[in-house]
């Protein structure tokens, strides 16, 4: 028995190396694992806050209406009642945050209207569409239509 122990003693050495490696791994893992990992699921909870910190570019309807109630009134009675301001005017969060210094540019009407109203077979049949070239012959839309309430 003693001899067996002596002759298999060398096997303890690689085992020791393995165990030492494992121990180092566990210690290092314990030290560098992200805080609260797994609080809600298998991920870093801090990621949620990181993603929430992204700044918004679109201010949202409510913020626009807080000042622009006149345009809102005009719009409410027309066909564009449910089109949000920023759908045509683009992202205005910087303007909403500093309306004194940041002034939005007016949209390019010719391109803007056509994007929605240019005739396309794939558009819903009941959606108002025109072939702009035939419809106005190059005259820009807001010569006749008021964009906030586009009746003739």
């Amino acid at each position: 028995m003693n001899r067996f122990l002596r002759d298999s003693g060398h096997l303890a050495r690689p085992a020791l190396v393995l165990v030492a490696g494992l121990a180092v791994f566990l210690v290092v893992r314990g030290a560098v694992i992200p805080k609260n990992f797994g609080k809600y699921g298998h991920y870093r909870p801090a990621a949620l806050d990181l993603i929430r910190q992204h700044p918004a570019a679109f201010a949202g309807q409510d913020q626009c209406l807080a000042c622009h109630d006149e345009q809102a009134k005009t719009r409410a009675s027309g066909k564009h009642a449910h089109v949000a301001c920023e759908a045509c005017h683009g992202p205005q969060a910087p303007h909403a945050a500093d309306f004194v210094n940041v002034k939005p540019a007016l949209p390019d009407v010719a391109a803007l209207c056509a994007r929605c109203h240019e005739n396309d077979a794939a558009k819903p049949k009941n959606f108002p569409q025109v072939v702009t070239a035939e419809h106005s012959g190059g005259v820009v839309c807001n010569t006749c239509h008021q964009p906030h309430n586009p009746h003739l």
């Binding site: 001899r3 067996f4 002596r6 002759d7 003693g9 060398h10 050495r13 690689p14 190396v17």
Partner: peptide
């Protein structure tokens, strides 16, 4: 690894 035991056993 520090062991030079080469006995037949």
């Amino acid at each position: 690894l520090g062991s030079e035991n080469l006995s037949p056993s």
